[in-house]
């Protein structure tokens, strides 16, 4: 019979109890990550879908991202190189790199807030690992970053710059970004589902961080304050990737220490909160 059902569902084995031990809660949270990671093709598909739908019907599609970033970098580059009285050849590559990398960080932080609330209808109609939605947020932003990298390549090509093989030194930094981004989406995703006034707070904090972090200005311009920059977590995280790409000898040991310490703190807080909140998020969204 043509109406026969053929595809079998995956097996589940659930044991949920209200008075779970701490170890059991950790096990369930680990299980969430493992099952979520196994669904990487879903996360990948949803991430692509988000980008595709955002630019649906436009001729250039996601390359609008590239163009808007390019225009922004060009405009800011000419303006600030005049204001700061800096050589365009020194300043523009720095700005292109900083602007694109910061764009990624800021978007991840902002998107993290809506990781779970955006997936409300799915979360409420099927048992799905929360980690899938974290991965989706990360993948969506990585795809956007990949489109923006074109701007960096073009600017570097115009000034015929090549940072050398130091460029590979950026990879460990990028790996740390991926881990931090996943931790942040789990934390802010759940936290913003519970407290709806967090997202505006996060957005204003990011606005301030944009100005106090050397994105449009160079660390060398602030004189003695440069010593204190590693206390800004965004400086450390930005520098471990940007440093090697600028070809100025890579990030210093101090920024790496800062980046790792801040990441450890973020991951521990995120994990502690996720273990507690995992079973409750469905009630919050």
């Amino acid at each position: 019979m043509s109406t026969a059902v053929t595809t079998a569902a995956a097996t589940t084995d659930l044991d949920l109890r209200a008075d779970m031990s701490v170890a059991a809660r950790h096990r369930l949270a680990v299980d969430d990550l493992i099952r979520g990671a196994r669904l990487w093709r879903l996360a990948w598909g949803l991430g692509w879908l988000d980008i595709r739908l955002r630019y649906r019907g436009s001729m250039l599609g996601p390359f609008w991202l590239t163009i808007s970033t390019g225009v922004m970098v060009a405009a800011l580059g000419f303006l600030y190189s005049t204001l700061f009285k800096m050589n365009l050849r020194d300043y523009l590559p720095f700005l292109a790199l900083s602007q694109v990398l910061w764009g990624f960080l800021a978007a991840v932080v902002s998107d993290a807030c809506t990781t779970f609330t955006d997936a409300e209808s799915v979360i409420r109609s099927v048992r799905m690992p929360f980690f899938v939605f974290s991965a989706r947020t990360l993948i969506r932003n990585i795809i956007a970053l990949a489109h923006n990298i074109v701007v960096i390549v073009v600017v570097f090509a115009i000034f015929s710059l090549w940072p050398g093989w130091d460029i590979l030194m950026a990879l460990p930094g990028l790996l740390l970004w991926v881990i931090d981004a996943l931790a942040l989406t789990l934390l802010l995703g759940a936290f913003c589902a519970r407290f709806r006034d967090i997202q505006p707070i996060v957005n204003s904090v990011m606005q301030i961080m944009f100005f106090v972090t050397p994105v449009i200005w160079k660390p060398s311009q602030v004189g003695a304050v440069v010593e204190k920059l590693p206390f800004n977590p965004f400086y450390d995280l930005l520098e471990i990737v940007r440093g090697p790409l600028l070809g100025d000898g890579g990030a210093t040991g101090m920024t790496w220490v800062g980046a790792i310490l801040y990441s450890l703190a973020l991951c521990s807080i995120s994990w502690a909160f996720f273990v507690r909140a995992r079973g409750r998020v469905t009630f919050w969204i």
């Binding site: 589940t12 949920l16 209200a18 409750r280």
Partner: peptide
């Protein structure tokens, strides 16, 4: 379906 986790009590499900 395991979507709402119980506030009190226990749920066990075996099978797809």
């Amino acid at each position: 379906a395991g979507i709402y986790e119980p506030a009190i009590g226990r749920l066990r499900v075996q099978g797809s």
